[in-house]
Design a protein around this nucleic acid. Structure first.
Length: 303
DNA sequence: ACCCTCACCTGCACGC
DNA sequence: TGCGTGCAGGTGAGGG
Protein backbone atom coordinates (compact mmCIF):
# COMPACT_ATOMS: atom_id res chain seq x y z
CA UNK A 1 0.00 0.00 0.00
CA UNK A 2 2.83 2.36 0.64
CA UNK A 3 3.77 4.56 -2.27
CA UNK A 4 6.94 6.61 -2.38
CA UNK A 5 5.99 9.17 0.30
CA UNK A 6 5.02 6.47 2.78
CA UNK A 7 8.23 4.57 2.10
CA UNK A 8 10.16 7.78 2.67
CA UNK A 9 8.52 8.16 6.07
CA UNK A 10 9.29 4.58 6.96
CA UNK A 11 12.92 5.22 6.03
CA UNK A 12 13.03 8.29 8.27
CA UNK A 13 11.41 6.41 11.13
CA UNK A 14 13.92 3.59 10.73
CA UNK A 15 16.76 6.10 10.88
CA UNK A 16 15.39 7.56 14.09
CA UNK A 17 14.81 4.13 15.55
CA UNK A 18 17.59 1.74 14.57
CA UNK A 19 20.43 3.58 12.82
CA UNK A 20 23.76 2.60 14.37
CA UNK A 21 22.41 -0.54 16.01
CA UNK A 22 23.98 -3.92 15.51
CA UNK A 23 22.01 -7.00 14.48
CA UNK A 24 22.96 -9.78 16.86
CA UNK A 25 20.58 -12.41 15.49
CA UNK A 26 17.82 -12.81 12.92
CA UNK A 27 14.79 -15.09 12.73
CA UNK A 28 12.95 -15.64 9.48
CA UNK A 29 9.50 -17.14 10.00
CA UNK A 30 8.42 -16.99 6.36
CA UNK A 31 11.13 -18.47 4.15
CA UNK A 32 9.80 -17.02 0.89
CA UNK A 33 10.34 -13.52 2.31
CA UNK A 34 14.07 -13.90 1.68
CA UNK A 35 13.88 -16.24 -1.30
CA UNK A 36 15.92 -17.28 -3.22
CA UNK A 37 18.23 -17.12 -0.22
CA UNK A 38 17.62 -19.66 2.50
CA UNK A 39 16.57 -18.37 5.89
CA UNK A 40 19.71 -19.75 7.51
CA UNK A 41 22.10 -18.24 4.96
CA UNK A 42 20.29 -14.94 5.19
CA UNK A 43 20.51 -14.88 8.99
CA UNK A 44 24.16 -15.89 8.98
CA UNK A 45 25.09 -13.10 6.58
CA UNK A 46 23.37 -10.51 8.78
CA UNK A 47 24.78 -11.66 12.10
CA UNK A 48 27.01 -9.05 13.66
CA UNK A 49 26.22 -6.37 11.10
CA UNK A 50 25.87 -2.74 12.07
CA UNK A 51 23.23 -0.54 10.44
CA UNK A 52 25.27 2.35 9.09
CA UNK A 53 22.79 4.02 6.71
CA UNK A 54 19.17 3.76 5.62
CA UNK A 55 18.11 5.06 2.23
CA UNK A 56 15.38 4.74 -0.34
CA UNK A 57 15.31 4.09 -4.09
CA UNK A 58 11.81 4.36 -5.47
CA UNK A 59 9.70 2.27 -3.15
CA UNK A 60 12.65 0.13 -2.09
CA UNK A 61 14.20 0.55 1.35
CA UNK A 62 17.98 0.15 1.41
CA UNK A 63 19.45 -0.71 4.79
CA UNK A 64 23.24 -0.48 4.60
CA UNK A 65 25.15 -2.85 6.80
CA UNK A 66 28.77 -3.07 7.80
CA UNK A 67 30.25 -6.29 9.02
CA UNK A 68 33.74 -6.56 10.36
CA UNK A 69 35.03 -10.01 9.61
CA UNK A 70 37.30 -11.72 12.09
CA UNK A 71 40.39 -11.00 10.05
CA UNK A 72 39.50 -7.33 9.69
CA UNK A 73 38.93 -6.95 13.38
CA UNK A 74 42.16 -8.74 14.22
CA UNK A 75 44.09 -6.56 11.83
CA UNK A 76 42.49 -3.44 13.21
CA UNK A 77 43.72 -4.41 16.62
CA UNK A 78 47.13 -5.24 15.26
CA UNK A 79 47.28 -1.88 13.50
CA UNK A 80 46.47 -0.10 16.71
CA UNK A 81 49.40 -1.91 18.25
CA UNK A 82 51.63 -0.84 15.40
CA UNK A 83 51.93 -4.44 14.35
CA UNK A 84 50.46 -4.12 10.85
CA UNK A 85 50.44 -1.71 7.93
CA UNK A 86 47.35 -0.02 6.59
CA UNK A 87 47.62 -1.80 3.26
CA UNK A 88 47.21 -5.18 4.89
CA UNK A 89 43.94 -4.18 6.53
CA UNK A 90 41.04 -6.08 5.06
CA UNK A 91 38.02 -3.78 4.73
CA UNK A 92 34.74 -4.53 6.42
CA UNK A 93 32.07 -6.25 4.33
CA UNK A 94 29.45 -3.78 3.20
CA UNK A 95 26.13 -5.22 2.21
CA UNK A 96 22.67 -3.83 1.77
CA UNK A 97 19.42 -5.25 2.99
CA UNK A 98 16.94 -4.44 0.22
CA UNK A 99 13.32 -4.37 1.35
CA UNK A 100 10.13 -3.84 -0.59
CA UNK A 101 6.97 -3.43 1.50
CA UNK A 102 4.64 -4.18 -1.41
CA UNK A 103 1.04 -3.92 -0.17
CA UNK A 104 1.10 -4.56 3.55
CA UNK A 105 4.72 -4.70 4.72
CA UNK A 106 5.46 -2.78 7.90
CA UNK A 107 8.37 -2.35 10.27
CA UNK A 108 8.00 -1.97 13.97
CA UNK A 109 10.35 -1.88 16.91
CA UNK A 110 9.55 -3.98 19.97
CA UNK A 111 10.87 -3.46 23.46
CA UNK A 112 11.67 -6.57 25.53
CA UNK A 113 8.22 -6.87 27.10
CA UNK A 114 6.32 -6.58 23.84
CA UNK A 115 4.70 -9.65 22.38
CA UNK A 116 5.42 -10.62 18.82
CA UNK A 117 2.45 -9.49 16.71
CA UNK A 118 0.71 -11.54 14.03
CA UNK A 119 2.36 -11.85 10.64
CA UNK A 120 5.81 -11.11 12.03
CA UNK A 121 7.84 -12.78 9.28
CA UNK A 122 11.28 -11.45 10.20
CA UNK A 123 12.69 -10.52 13.59
CA UNK A 124 16.02 -8.74 13.92
CA UNK A 125 17.46 -8.84 17.42
CA UNK A 126 19.35 -5.63 18.11
CA UNK A 127 22.23 -4.99 20.49
CA UNK A 128 20.07 -2.81 22.75
CA UNK A 129 17.59 -5.58 23.63
CA UNK A 130 15.00 -4.30 21.20
CA UNK A 131 13.75 -6.16 18.13
CA UNK A 132 13.14 -4.76 14.69
CA UNK A 133 10.18 -6.68 13.29
CA UNK A 134 8.92 -6.95 9.74
CA UNK A 135 5.19 -7.69 9.51
CA UNK A 136 3.31 -8.40 6.35
CA UNK A 137 -0.26 -9.60 6.36
CA UNK A 138 -0.43 -10.45 2.66
CA UNK A 139 3.09 -11.84 2.43
CA UNK A 140 3.92 -9.94 -0.74
CA UNK A 141 6.90 -8.10 0.71
CA UNK A 142 10.44 -9.14 -0.17
CA UNK A 143 13.90 -8.90 1.36
CA UNK A 144 17.20 -9.49 -0.37
CA UNK A 145 20.84 -9.02 0.50
CA UNK A 146 23.27 -7.55 -1.99
CA UNK A 147 26.86 -6.42 -1.90
CA UNK A 148 26.82 -2.66 -1.58
CA UNK A 149 28.60 -2.16 -4.88
CA UNK A 150 26.00 -4.24 -6.70
CA UNK A 151 22.74 -2.80 -5.39
CA UNK A 152 22.22 -0.73 -8.54
CA UNK A 153 22.51 -3.84 -10.67
CA UNK A 154 19.94 -5.75 -8.68
CA UNK A 155 16.89 -6.88 -10.55
CA UNK A 156 14.00 -4.61 -9.70
CA UNK A 157 16.26 -1.68 -8.90
CA UNK A 158 18.32 -1.44 -12.07
CA UNK A 159 15.21 -0.87 -14.20
CA UNK A 160 13.75 1.94 -12.11
CA UNK A 161 13.00 5.33 -13.60
CA UNK A 162 14.79 8.41 -12.22
CA UNK A 163 13.88 9.63 -8.75
CA UNK A 164 10.93 12.01 -9.10
CA UNK A 165 12.62 14.79 -7.13
CA UNK A 166 15.92 14.46 -8.97
CA UNK A 167 17.07 16.57 -11.89
CA UNK A 168 16.86 13.59 -14.26
CA UNK A 169 13.12 13.52 -13.90
CA UNK A 170 12.52 16.65 -15.92
CA UNK A 171 9.89 17.66 -18.45
CA UNK A 172 12.11 16.48 -21.30
CA UNK A 173 12.39 13.03 -19.76
CA UNK A 174 8.64 12.80 -19.27
CA UNK A 175 7.89 13.96 -22.82
CA UNK A 176 10.28 11.42 -24.25
CA UNK A 177 8.89 8.66 -22.06
CA UNK A 178 5.26 9.42 -22.85
CA UNK A 179 5.95 9.72 -26.56
CA UNK A 180 7.12 6.11 -26.69
CA UNK A 181 4.02 4.56 -25.12
CA UNK A 182 0.56 3.87 -26.43
CA UNK A 183 -0.76 2.92 -23.03
CA UNK A 184 -3.13 5.12 -21.07
CA UNK A 185 -1.62 7.66 -18.71
CA UNK A 186 -3.04 5.93 -15.66
CA UNK A 187 -1.39 2.66 -16.56
CA UNK A 188 1.88 4.30 -17.50
CA UNK A 189 2.10 6.27 -14.28
CA UNK A 190 2.03 3.01 -12.34
CA UNK A 191 4.99 1.62 -14.27
CA UNK A 192 7.99 2.19 -12.01
CA UNK A 193 10.39 1.81 -14.94
CA UNK A 194 8.85 4.93 -16.56
CA UNK A 195 7.68 7.15 -13.74
CA UNK A 196 8.91 6.40 -10.25
CA UNK A 197 7.10 6.61 -6.97
CA UNK A 198 3.41 6.80 -7.80
CA UNK A 199 1.02 4.04 -6.84
CA UNK A 200 -2.67 3.69 -7.43
CA UNK A 201 -3.63 6.58 -5.13
CA UNK A 202 -1.11 9.18 -6.21
CA UNK A 203 -1.50 8.30 -9.89
CA UNK A 204 -5.16 9.28 -9.71
CA UNK A 205 -4.35 12.28 -7.55
CA UNK A 206 -1.62 13.55 -9.86
CA UNK A 207 -3.90 13.29 -12.88
CA UNK A 208 -6.64 15.16 -11.08
CA UNK A 209 -4.26 17.89 -10.00
CA UNK A 210 -3.09 18.25 -13.59
CA UNK A 211 -6.72 18.17 -14.77
CA UNK A 212 -5.96 15.42 -17.26
CA UNK A 213 -8.14 12.46 -18.15
CA UNK A 214 -6.60 9.17 -16.93
CA UNK A 215 -7.51 7.35 -20.14
CA UNK A 216 -5.67 9.57 -22.56
CA UNK A 217 -3.01 7.81 -24.58
CA UNK A 218 0.44 8.72 -23.31
CA UNK A 219 2.03 9.43 -26.67
CA UNK A 220 -0.77 11.81 -27.64
CA UNK A 221 -0.42 14.12 -24.65
CA UNK A 222 0.24 17.73 -25.56
CA UNK A 223 3.35 19.53 -24.45
CA UNK A 224 1.38 21.80 -22.22
CA UNK A 225 -0.40 18.94 -20.50
CA UNK A 226 2.86 17.02 -20.12
CA UNK A 227 4.35 20.00 -18.31
CA UNK A 228 1.33 20.16 -16.05
CA UNK A 229 1.52 16.45 -15.35
CA UNK A 230 5.22 16.68 -14.51
CA UNK A 231 4.55 19.43 -12.04
CA UNK A 232 1.57 17.62 -10.54
CA UNK A 233 3.50 14.41 -9.99
CA UNK A 234 6.09 16.28 -8.00
CA UNK A 235 3.52 18.37 -6.15
CA UNK A 236 1.47 15.37 -5.10
CA UNK A 237 4.48 13.42 -3.89
CA UNK A 238 6.07 16.39 -2.18
CA UNK A 239 2.87 17.29 -0.38
CA UNK A 240 2.60 13.77 0.96
CA UNK A 241 6.23 13.65 2.04
CA UNK A 242 5.94 16.91 3.94
CA UNK A 243 2.51 16.36 5.42
CA UNK A 244 2.28 16.89 9.16
CA UNK A 245 0.15 13.86 9.78
CA UNK A 246 2.84 11.49 8.63
CA UNK A 247 5.83 13.20 10.20
CA UNK A 248 5.37 11.47 13.51
CA UNK A 249 5.52 7.87 12.34
CA UNK A 250 6.81 6.00 15.36
CA UNK A 251 7.87 2.40 14.93
CA UNK A 252 7.67 1.81 18.68
CA UNK A 253 4.02 2.72 18.90
CA UNK A 254 2.49 -0.46 20.36
CA UNK A 255 -0.65 -0.01 18.29
CA UNK A 256 1.44 -0.13 15.17
CA UNK A 257 0.17 1.87 12.28
CA UNK A 258 -1.68 1.55 9.07
CA UNK A 259 -0.58 3.65 6.17
CA UNK A 260 -4.07 5.04 5.86
CA UNK A 261 -4.06 6.30 9.44
CA UNK A 262 -0.50 7.41 9.65
CA UNK A 263 -0.73 9.30 6.42
CA UNK A 264 -4.39 10.16 6.68
CA UNK A 265 -5.18 12.68 4.02
CA UNK A 266 -8.25 13.87 2.28
CA UNK A 267 -7.84 12.59 -1.23
CA UNK A 268 -9.22 14.75 -4.00
CA UNK A 269 -10.54 11.82 -6.01
CA UNK A 270 -9.19 8.53 -4.65
CA UNK A 271 -11.85 6.52 -2.80
CA UNK A 272 -14.40 9.26 -3.44
CA UNK A 273 -16.67 7.55 -5.95
CA UNK A 274 -20.05 9.29 -6.13
CA UNK A 275 -18.92 12.17 -3.93
CA UNK A 276 -18.79 15.75 -5.19
CA UNK A 277 -15.59 16.99 -6.78
CA UNK A 278 -14.03 19.58 -4.48
CA UNK A 279 -13.45 21.81 -7.46
CA UNK A 280 -16.69 21.66 -9.43
CA UNK A 281 -19.15 19.53 -7.48
CA UNK A 282 -19.55 16.88 -10.15
CA UNK A 283 -19.74 13.32 -8.84
CA UNK A 284 -16.38 11.53 -8.88
CA UNK A 285 -16.35 8.44 -11.06
CA UNK A 286 -14.58 5.15 -10.59
CA UNK A 287 -13.79 2.43 -13.07
CA UNK A 288 -11.64 -0.67 -12.95
CA UNK A 289 -8.90 -0.17 -15.45
CA UNK A 290 -5.91 -2.44 -15.87
CA UNK A 291 -7.15 -4.35 -12.85
CA UNK A 292 -7.00 -1.31 -10.57
CA UNK A 293 -9.56 1.25 -9.50
CA UNK A 294 -9.19 4.59 -11.19
CA UNK A 295 -10.97 7.68 -9.87
CA UNK A 296 -11.50 10.91 -11.73
CA UNK A 297 -13.76 13.91 -12.10
CA UNK A 298 -15.56 13.60 -15.45
CA UNK A 299 -15.85 17.36 -15.75
CA UNK A 300 -12.44 18.59 -14.55
CA UNK A 301 -10.69 15.76 -16.38
CA UNK A 302 -12.56 15.61 -19.68
CA UNK A 303 -11.03 13.67 -22.53
C1' DA B 1 9.74 -4.28 -27.39
C1' DC B 2 5.63 -3.69 -25.60
C1' DC B 3 1.62 -4.54 -23.12
C1' DC B 4 -1.97 -7.32 -20.94
C1' DT B 5 -3.61 -10.75 -17.65
C1' DC B 6 -2.98 -13.28 -13.91
C1' DA B 7 -0.84 -14.84 -9.75
C1' DC B 8 0.87 -14.05 -5.28
C1' DC B 9 -1.87 -13.76 -0.04
C1' DT B 10 -4.96 -12.41 3.96
C1' DG B 11 -8.62 -9.85 5.72
C1' DC B 12 -12.45 -6.87 5.50
C1' DA B 13 -16.94 -4.90 4.00
C1' DC B 14 -20.87 -6.00 1.83
C1' DG B 15 -25.28 -8.33 0.41
C1' DC B 16 -28.15 -12.25 0.87
C1' DT C 1 -24.26 -15.88 12.27
C1' DG C 2 -22.59 -17.53 8.14
C1' DC C 3 -21.21 -17.64 3.58
C1' DG C 4 -20.06 -16.04 -0.98
C1' DT C 5 -18.18 -12.16 -3.55
C1' DG C 6 -15.34 -8.45 -4.55
C1' DC C 7 -11.91 -5.50 -3.26
C1' DA C 8 -7.34 -3.69 -1.18
C1' DG C 9 -2.36 1.73 -1.78
C1' DG C 10 2.47 -3.55 -5.66
C1' DT C 11 4.98 -6.11 -8.56
C1' DG C 12 6.68 -9.91 -11.75
C1' DA C 13 6.17 -14.06 -14.67
C1' DG C 14 4.35 -15.57 -18.78
C1' DG C 15 2.31 -15.16 -23.01
C1' DG C 16 0.27 -12.79 -27.14
Amino acid sequence: MPELPEVEHVVRALRRGVLGRQIVATEIHLPKLVSPSSASTFSRKLKGSRIIAINRRGKYILIELEKLNARGRALTNALTNEGATASSLKPATEQVLIVHLRMTGKFMVLTPDDELPRHAHAVFYLDDERRLVFRDQRQFGIMRLAAKSRVGETKGISELAPEPFGSDFNVGYLKETLSRSRRTLKTLLLDQTRVLGLGNIYASEALFRAQINPFRIASALSSKRTERLHQSIRDVLRAAVSSNSSRRLNLEDPKGFSYGEAFGKVWQVYDREGKPCFKCGTRIKRITHGGRSTYWCPKCQRR
